[in-house]
Write a protein that binds this DNA or RNA. Sequence first.
DNA 1: GCAATTCATCCGGAAAGTGCACTAAAAAGA
DNA 2: TCTTTTTAGTGCACTTTCCGGATGAATTGC
Lengths: 389, 389
Amino acid sequence: MSAPSPGALERLRGAHRRAVTGLLAGGPLSRADLTRATGLSRTTVSSLVTELIASGQVIETTDRGRPHKGGSGRPPLLVALATPGGSVVGVDVGHHHVRVAVADRTGDVLAEETAAVDVDSHGAHTLDRAASMVRAALTRAGLGRDDALAVGMCVPAPLHRASAQIRTGILPGWQGLCPGEELHRRLGLPVFVDNDANLGALAEVGRGAAQGVADLVYVKVASGLGAGIVLGGRLHRGATGIAGELGHVQVGEDGPVCRCGNRGCLETLVSASRLVQVLQPAHDEPLDMARVLGLDADGDPGVRRVLGDAGRTIGRALADLCNSLNPEMVLLGGSLGASPSVALGIREALDRYAQPETAAAVRVAAGSLGDRAEIVGAVSLAIVRVAAT
Amino acid sequence: MSAPSPGALERLRGAHRRAVTGLLAGGPLSRADLTRATGLSRTTVSSLVTELIASGQVIETTDRGRPHKGGSGRPPLLVALATPGGSVVGVDVGHHHVRVAVADRTGDVLAEETAAVDVDSHGAHTLDRAASMVRAALTRAGLGRDDALAVGMCVPAPLHRASAQIRTGILPGWQGLCPGEELHRRLGLPVFVDNDANLGALAEVGRGAAQGVADLVYVKVASGLGAGIVLGGRLHRGATGIAGELGHVQVGEDGPVCRCGNRGCLETLVSASRLVQVLQPAHDEPLDMARVLGLDADGDPGVRRVLGDAGRTIGRALADLCNSLNPEMVLLGGSLGASPSVALGIREALDRYAQPETAAAVRVAAGSLGDRAEIVGAVSLAIVRVAAT
DNA sequence: GCAATTCATCCGGAAAGTGCACTAAAAAGA
DNA sequence: TCTTTTTAGTGCACTTTCCGGATGAATTGC
């Protein structure tokens, strides 16, 4: 008989366990795959998996995989995170919509629902609505509330790091609110929150166009303009959690007044609403962003010019940031992210204004998740945080 | 008989060994102190220390420490890194000087020497000179070459990450050179290299005004303008190792042409040489930076105005960077770092141009190491890299 | 049917960490 | 002075974790 010893060895084991669950969060894998990915021995991985199966966190799937790269050999048994009793919820709160998704622990979505809501002015009401949408989505996925492990939530505003509180006045009906705590009170589940740009970046790194990228600047252009910055593979949130406020970089001393109180902010020149407003007079039909993107794709010269200019304006600001951070990739998200003209404008400005070596090192591309980046990121956040326990 | 198994357990042991040597790099400690600091058990620490003593990396000192916080109890036996046979060398190559220091593994300097050298135009010659200075300093410290474990070197130009090569044309006589490899060839010691801003940041975080700061922007203003960026406690070098090029942020579309080939770079407006040049016409005596700083301290209004403007110009660029990174501190180094007028100007510009919460979160201060920041950083680099093995 | 190949597990052993008992050395108090 | 208390360090038995080789399993190609 001897006392239990909670120490360094157990922490090591835990780290390895998390490595395995983390890898499995990306999809089913064989024990052999896990061996190669973790660098551990076959034996160790086998024992870890056995343990995880015994504890119900992992299940052995019925389908067999291909025997390593097409050749011969015994086909592997795939293991996956246990979906039953282990789903997660993502909540994406935008300026004008709420989207809710229920996903299994590999990130595959089981049920999803979107609703148009006047989010900006009504914090408490929006959260009520989100909570009932979550309950409905869980039911539709055939799950009870106890089957959900955690909620990841996306809000369109920076959060204060220590208090997880919304402090800026960007969302009038939310000021002083702790969205995570509020939703937790309504659902009784652990809730993890971050802003839209950060979660978009997380999504693109995990399941999108930036897989394997260590240093990424993800730029989201929609109602506002924000950045999610990934450095060394980790999201950079800053000292008080409000890093990434690229929209309030100063681009003109006497530009229009911004909602942040300053004037000349980048966001006042290139937000989606601003661009629609600029383009409207030249068109008879009423424009919205989707229509503008259509015209861009059709080669409308006026639209191309305006979007290209917007890209160049963003690119000029990004050039300064890239000089400082030397990232591997700049990825575009938000409604404007899909426009080739914007991407081209950014590329041009980077080549012109950034240091040649910095410009050469950085790839510019559109995110591959489109307007689902935020919800995917919210789900990822929940998965990551659950796996970390 | 069994094969050697380099695996997870050995890595764990190594990590613990490094934790111990890392702690001892800050000064002698007792085994009990190490137990508290590492969180490991007494037994484990004891065995680690025994092992390190056997391998000669650590010695037991003769003096005993106080018995834990003044109370009673057996006084501990202090152990320290073995200084004899364990010193490190720092080399600071500036634009116009070479400085060399020999230090023990706690970072205390045993011998130091500075020489004026026309560095920019003569790469190979400068390295010859540096190598002979290192040999002389070792001799003066009463050490043979075998007593030195490694060299940390500081160069005033960004290095390419993969090749450790100088690629920019800023140092004409160095282009294409691998300074680390070159010095290694001359000294036969392992050489680790980084640029001046990065090493200044490292020094201030380790032994200067930024101790304990996780997110730091260190701005060095001297012949050029560069930044060392520390995020999450780690130096951020970027995808190709050239992060921190703050001097080439664009502040005016049609500004003067910069040595980098662009025009309107921040560096063209606020480098030390540029400021001296701006101030000279208003003074009869020939000015240099030291004299300018003296006039600033004496309250000369013209000098204050020009330095304040310089600070505001830097601060304006920093405001954008701070909006994106939300750092905890901005620290000033280089010859201009000591000027209160510059610091004040930066503070003003941050308050004006950065987001209010970002500006409120960031402290602005002068580095506490002055022009020795680079050499301290070079020594620190050597110590850190040696401890990591 | 047989070799080749890959996948997974079992077993024995080695490496690392921990608790406990024990000794050592000093201060505090009777 | 002698005992008690407190802290420091070490030896030993034991547990946890990991690894390598042997073994068995499942499939492809001949």
